[in-house]
Amino acid sequence: GVRLFERHADGLYRQPDDREILTVDLLKRRYEQDFIVQEALRQSRFMAGFCTSSVNTLRVTTYRSVITERIEVLSIVLRIGHEGAVVDNFHGGGMIVGVHSDGRVGQTAVDDSGARHPVHHAEGAASLRLPQVGAVTEFAVEIARRIDHHRLLALDIAIDGNDKPRLIEFNVSSYGIPLAQMTLGPTFGHFTDEIIDYCREHRRQAHKVFVRRT
């Protein structure tokens, strides 16, 4: 549902295909009463090197340990849009590639069918390294510190034109766990055993809450 409009010389905002002009009437027809209009984010040169038309984001999964209460970054997955698309959604034609803790970007990307493709970058794909990996990790931990009621979070983070991390959204469900497993390996890594033990001990305390809308 994301659409991009660009300002033209006549002052009107049009979609890149020049078919539709941004108006309140258009927004109401497309989205009824539920929409947000905001300035488009200009991404860093490094992130734009994967795809120039979409803002390519990092899916960063954080976990607050049930033993130490320390917040850990479990995985960083780079999402790459296909050229011409304005979003990098995995199920919308995008691809994913794992980013290691030291910033190394994998050389193989995966699409939503599981097919593997070589990673392409404007500066060449060999030995790619995310320059801001330290800043992204610190930023993700700080965000997770502010959200007390969820031990597991999936954050979508972009790198702006000033090479600063920007939070697009955070998820408290639908974490996209397969994204990490398809590119980096087991989701919880060496925290797997402590999570299994915790769930066994607290199984009887678990319950589901159903909300009925009236």
Rank of each mutant, 00 (worst) to 15 (best):
A85K: 15
D88G: 10
V24N: 06
I71G: 03
G176Q: 08
L58H: 01
Q33E: 11
F139K: 13
N162R: 14
L74F: 01
E169L: 09
D17A: 09
V110W: 12
A206D: 07
F90D: 06
T183E: 07
S65E: 07
F50R: 12
D148I: 00
F139S: 10
D197E: 12
L179H: 07
R3C: 04
V136D: 06
D102I: 00
V209Y: 13
F139C: 08
D111L: 04
I177Y: 04
V211W: 13
A180C: 12
Y13W: 07
R129M: 12
R42I: 15
L167Y: 11
S65H: 03
A115R: 12
I80R: 07
R166E: 05
H117C: 06
G92V: 00
I67A: 14
I196Q: 01
I159A: 11
V87Y: 00
A125D: 06
G103P: 05
I177P: 00
G134W: 01
G84V: 15
T108M: 13
S65I: 13
N171G: 02
L41T: 10
V99C: 04
H121M: 09
K164L: 13
P131I: 10
E138A: 15
E201V: 01
I76K: 08
T214G: 01
V97L: 01
E72N: 11
D17Q: 02
H202V: 01
N56I: 08
S101V: 08
Y175C: 02
G1N: 12
V55C: 08
L41D: 03
A144N: 02
H120W: 03
K28P: 01
R59L: 06
V119F: 09
D10I: 07
G106A: 04
G98A: 05
T61P: 02
A9I: 15
A48I: 05
N162Y: 07
D102K: 02
V55H: 05
F210S: 10
R200H: 14
D160L: 14
A125I: 11
V24I: 15
A122W: 10
L58D: 01
Q107I: 14
H202D: 04
H202E: 07
F191A: 14
L78A: 08
R79H: 10
T68A: 08
E32P: 04
R116Q: 14
D193P: 03
G93D: 09
A206G: 12
G93Y: 02
E39W: 04
G106C: 04
L179E: 14
P186H: 04
S65R: 06
S174K: 03
D197S: 14
I76M: 08
Q181I: 09
R204L: 09
R104N: 12
R59E: 04
T23H: 00
